[in-house]
Design a binder for these strands. Structure first.
Lengths: 262, 262
DNA sequence: TTCAATTGTCGTCAATTGACGACTTATAGC
DNA sequence: GCTATAAGTCGTCAATTGACGACAATTGAA
């Protein structure tokens, strides 16, 4: 299903090359002949036939190849889960499986690197700046922040990777993310409270949970869209507007009710 | 890490039994002797040492064993993902791996059965009855429904199974679930609209999305709690109350804003 | 041109894993 | 007790899969 890969074509062409009988049960072996021309032709043909995703441009410098592998790996693990096979990943990259181990000592390390780049690398400091720009009404600030957040961060790739990582043992510390989101929610709540001129409860955890009312709802929308393949009929921007309005509309009663109960 | 399993003990005791040389490379083989007494002792010892989860009561009737396996499997796959190994599952069940295949033709079929029982089997018709009982205020109805829903349905086991299933290819039709939730949200919205005496927009998809504002936020809370292992400090019931109040507090403005934009 | 460093591949190993044939043992009905 | 039947186990196979040693092809600097 994964298109015709260079490796496949090559395999068909030069099947069974084997330099010498190795220990263990033998197999048929043939002398490897200079197949330079043949290989070149094969390579060219397969290059043309390669799929849209990250296929190789034969002989990349170290850094570039590494970047390409990481990029393809992000896509790959996002779709196939972190237990996706290195052979299939190599196929998707258009390189041999062995080559992966030139860049990463183990598969685990590769996955960890993908996690670092793709999951942790998306948070932007500018969010905090813009969200606190009080020359703009909160509603507008929230709109534009969540529209960007939904579009740029809560992507299929990011969400699936994040969920796969979260599900398969929490060894990948989500503390960093938790910390960022916590700060985000606090800014959110503070700005809303300022706009409506209400005092937030002392209980930080409680304030956070109020913030999650909005953030969680939008995150869940993304999950529905990308994980449960719910067809989303309504426009994303409109969804965001609705959630934000809902939040701001119920903000004062919510805060007062919680403050009273505290 | 998974306690001392019967199989392990047995293995240590009667290592290497082999009835006859089979095709393929041979191995050391020994005559199997009547190890009845020994085996019996081994079995007893291992029974005592078995873990808390579904260990076997040796020689269960078909239906019971099947039920026990399914129960253990639900727990097992929920923790280890649907790609968890049959050997480990058998261990957790306290039976041999081979026995699983007496009940299910393939692992896939076993997983499918778990899905049917554990994921699809939790939805209750009574929800719809109670949610539409207009002798009770909506707020109260919503409270008690979501408190039960969060406690009984959005459990760690259910959520993780559901996410694993959703992530690893959507071949497991979530249509049934989608249909139930859709009905649920429609009831929710209808009841709220009735209480506040407002008219809902024609656009069904839009109305659904409004309902998701509440349902998604609570679902996301459960995900945070069970998947991202966020320590939840605030009491579950209070969380539900907050979300419901938030929703009802912002309900009228939301509906009117959306109706106006329509 | 030459050649050493770099990029890339082949073929294989050992461990894992779903599946199953052949066999053993407990149990219920007589 | 005796036996048929169902419950349960062993050991193995074939396919996968992470990992790697050994070799080959390309490239660019001298």
């Amino acid at each position: 299903m994964h298109l015709l890969q260079p490796a496949t074509v090559w395999d068909l062409a030069v099947r069974g090359g084997c330099y010498k009988p190795v220990r263990g049960m033998l197999r048929g072996h043939r002398v490897r002949m200079k197949a330079n021309t043949m290989r070149k032709r094969t390579r060219t043909a397969s290059d043309e036939g390669r799929g849209a995703s990250g296929a190789s441009q034969s002989r990349l410098p170290h850094a570039e190849r590494r970047a390409q592998i990481l990029d393809t790996a992000a896509q790959f693990f996002s779709e196939n889960g972190l237990s996706g096979q290195t052979r299939r990943l190599a196929e998707a990259c258009g390189v041999s499986q062995r080559l992966l181990y030139r860049f990463f000592p183990t598969k685990e390390e590769l996955v960890a690197e993908v996690y670092r780049e793709e999951i942790l690398g998306v948070f932007k400091a500018s969010w905090f700046v813009e969200l606190q720009d009080r020359s703009v009404p909160v509603e507008e600030r929230f709109f534009s922040f969540y529209q960007e957040y939904l579009q740029k961060t809560l992507t299929r790739k990011w969400l699936r990777l994040f969920l796969f990582a979260s599900l398969t043992d929490g060894s990948m510390a989500p503390d960093y993310i938790a910390s960022i989101i916590t700060q985000l929610l606090e800014v959110l709540m503070r700005e809303a409270a300022h706009e409506f001129d209400v005092t937030l409860p002392e209980d930080r955890a409680l304030v956070l949970e109020m913030g999650w009312t909005l953030h969680g709802a939008i995150s869940h929308y993304a999950i529905r869209k990308h994980i449960y393949k719910a067809r989303t009929v309504v426009d994303d921007d409109r969804i965001v507007e609705m959630h934000v309005r809902m939040f701001l509309g119920g903000f004062v009663p919510m805060v007062e009710a919680q403050a009273a109960a505290d």
